[in-house]
């Protein structure tokens, strides 16, 4: 029976092989060694630029809006396909990955080393802001770098990937990594020191992106769904008042500079406003380090004795 089966296959194979054109075109050499390094958000781009011998080789697409909700075009993805490695934030940050074709073997998930520490949130509401339509913060929280010790681990995996995969890697990589980690550790230490003044301080966040930050620096943060550049509707004010009844915070952390009108109304409610920019996108001025230093500076009044 087995013999018969293999004979059937032999006949089928014979006929199949005729299908293969005799004058087969030799495949040209495989795609030229990809030299650009793709990064999916600004913190990674900043780390990669500091670690790379040629910062020009780091490709962060121009994204109008939050890179976590990027909707790439086919042209964008064609460019991504040429890159190696593809440095991702991970922790479900790159939702666009589900609808595109990229060389998965080249993917480096910088947050997979602390996958067991990802934060999962449930029962969040879908909401809408900006031109990109509604979205939800349900599921895994992806703003991993706001815990600066996690950011350092991400920088470490990024450095490993550059050393392994990118032929143009900088021979000075270990030193540059050391400097970067030392800068990130410095930020981490500064934040720890600052927040130690008021452990478990209750705060309100304008957007639910500060979960890792809260966990790392021992804070109790509850979030609303406000946009800094949009004056909240009355219903949103009511929701905030409701939160404050069980969560008596005195400060609200904003992702970006809020409207003066909002600041004044919050002030009347006894809430101060402070900006802690997650810095997911390329800043207009400064860099990740300076923005984070500015964030720490901004937080000082909050933790003043």
């Amino acid at each position: 029976m087995k013999r018969l089966h293999s004979i059937c296959w032999a006949i089928a194979a014979l006929s199949l092989l005729i299908s293969c054109d005799s004058e087969s075109e030799k495949p040209a050499s495989p795609p030229a060694a990809e030299s650009k390094v793709f990064v999916s958000n600004y913190p990674l781009a900043y780390f990669a630029r500091r670690l790379s011998a040629d910062p020009g080789q780091i490709y962060l697409p121009e994204i109008n809006g939050d890179p976590a909700f990027w909707q790439p075009t086919a042209e964008d993805i064609s460019t991504v396909q040429q890159c190696n490695p593809l440095i991702l934030n991970g922790a479900t940050y790159e939702k666009w990955l589900n609808t595109v074709t990229v060389p998965r073997r080249r993917i480096v998930d910088t947050s997979s080393s602390f996958q067991d520490q990802w934060i999962n949130i449930e029962n969040e509401v879908t909401h809408q802001h900006g031109p990109k339509g509604p979205h939800s913060h349900n599921g895994i929280v992806f703003t991993t770098w706001l815990d600066l010790s996690q950011a350092a681990r991400q920088a470490q995996s990024l450095a490993d990937a550059l050393g392994e995969k990118n032929p143009l890697t900088n021979s000075d990589l270990p030193n540059q990594l050391k400097n970067l980690i030392s800068d990130l550790d410095g930020l981490n230490a500064a934040l720890k020191k600052l927040t130690n003044n008021k452990p478990q301080l209750q705060l309100v966040a304008s957007h639910p992106v500060y979960q890792y930050f809260a966990r790392a620096y021992n804070l109790d943060i509850q979030a609303v769904l406000w946009e800094p550049d949009v004056y909240p509707e009355e219903q949103q004010w009511t929701e905030l008042e409701k939160i404050l009844t069980t969560h008596p915070a005195q400060w609200m952390i904003w992702e970006g500079p809020p409207l003066e009108k909002s600041v004044q109304r919050l002030k009347k409610m006894g809430l101060g406003s402070v900006v802690f920019d997650p810095c997911a996108n390329q800043p207009d001025s400064g860099d990740f380090l300076s923005i984070m230093q500015q964030n720490i500076k901004n937080l000082r009044p909050v933790f003043a004795q």
Binding site: P27, A74, S78, Q81, N98, T99, V100, T101, R104, R105
Partner: peptide, 24 residues
């Protein structure tokens, strides 16, 4: 499949480009 297949079999595009988005 994944793009690894194209690399593994050394397949090259003659016209157009590789698939980039779902449904291509």
């Amino acid at each position: 499949t994944t793009l690894d297949y194209f690399e593994h079999r050394q397949l090259n595009i003659k016209d157009g480009r590789l698939m980039a988005m779902l449904g291509e």
